[in-house]
Design a binder for these strands. Structure first.
Lengths: 195, 195
DNA sequence: TGCATAACCGGACCGGCGGTCCGTATGTTG
DNA sequence: CAACATACGGACCGCCGGTCCGGTTATGCA
């Protein structure tokens, strides 16, 4: 009874909006240049449709982000080695962080938009952050005798914040593979330290 | 010839604006609620004065932040143990991070306002970030045989990002001393790992 | 001390943004 | 095919950062 089938055009419009937003974010120089009116126009839709379907701007960005992240989420929750839950922690932690880093490199502006802290919606009050944190913490906890996993998980996730990634690969022109290597080295140091 | 003495009332107004902004940020729930018009009104000054004196909103926030941070900066560049330059790296790195963490705890909303990434001004394109990073990196480089100091410095600074600190001490109510201890443990793990 | 001048003040004003609202159009169901 | 519910869309609103210029006031010189 709670679920009512949405109208067909509504579903189509929803997809059109997400596709338009994705394109606009990818093409823009800065996420703030992508306004709700722009997205609506690019999707051939009125502004009202955007706000009815997604609530507000952060809501739209979140929906888009989570849609694009879904494959990785799948791979982590029940995928094969090295992201899946059967991977031993020493391998899985770096794999998780590397996957997240690559995702942010591939969706730079979208990730930047998401992490823009506006008003009460910090990047830490999102569903997917909690999920990443819990996954990482639980994996760390599988390391025998490891302590401080909660804070460590936060700190590791902070090392791949979108704006930091953007800063390192942007003006300083650090190549993608270099950054991945640096992150891997950093992670290794965390895992092999005293527990 | 480049330096002209500013008028006395201009200097007074500048201080009044900084004081008003400091108070408003401290009292507000969220940094975005503090508008330029509010600051101007609280300082008994017109909006034009704000923009002439500080350029724009980020400029005002930066000026305020750097003014409040100045004592710590002094203590780091030529102060005594444990922040000063004569401290051995194993002690100085945690001391630097702890000082920064405490500062962000004491100036929570101001720090949040500063790190809000708007348009082209990411928190990483500020003078003081470069300074913190360089200081931390150089200190890490004094550790014999340490590699990857550049990225490590970024990652350590990311662990004390204002919004993360806010998130941990806010809803989750983690006491100040707990967080400091967690950060210290994390830092220690970094320093004692394989180089 | 008084005047001429440049520096500074301040609030009316502007463009643009996120978000709302309601008359209209369209898909859906019996 | 009719009648209803649902979604559409763009005019509209309030607010904010930032600009501008006529009026004011400190300052340097005579």
């Amino acid at each position: 009874m709670p679920e009512r089938k949405p109208r067909a055009d509504a579903a189509r419009n929803r997809e059109a909006v997400l596709a338009a937003a994705d394109r606009l974010f990818a093409e823009s120089d800065s996420p703030e240049q992508v306004t709700m009116a722009h997205i609506a126009a690019a999707a051939g839709v009125g502004k009202g449709t955007l706000f009815r379907g997604f609530g507000d701007r952060p809501g739209l960005i979140r929906a888009l982000y989570e849609a694009r992240l879904e494959p990785i989420r799948q791979a982590v929750t029940d995928g094969p080695h090295p992201l899946g839950p059967d991977t031993p922690p020493q391998e899985r932690v770096p794999a998780l962080l590397d996957a997240l880093l690559c995702f942010k490199l591939d969706h730079r502006h979208l990730s930047l938009a998401l992490e823009e802290s506006g008003a009460g919606n910090s990047p830490y009050r999102t569903q997917h952050y909690d999920w990443w944190h819990a996954t990482l913490r639980d994996t760390l906890d599988r390391l025998p005798g490891y302590t401080g996993s909660d804070f460590t998980a936060h700190a590791l996730l902070a090392a791949v914040r979108a704006d930091l990634v953007d800063h390192l690969t942007g003006p300083r022109n650090l190549p993608r593979e270099h950054l991945r290597a640096e992150l891997a080295a950093f992670t290794a140091r965390i895992l092999s330290g005293p527990s």
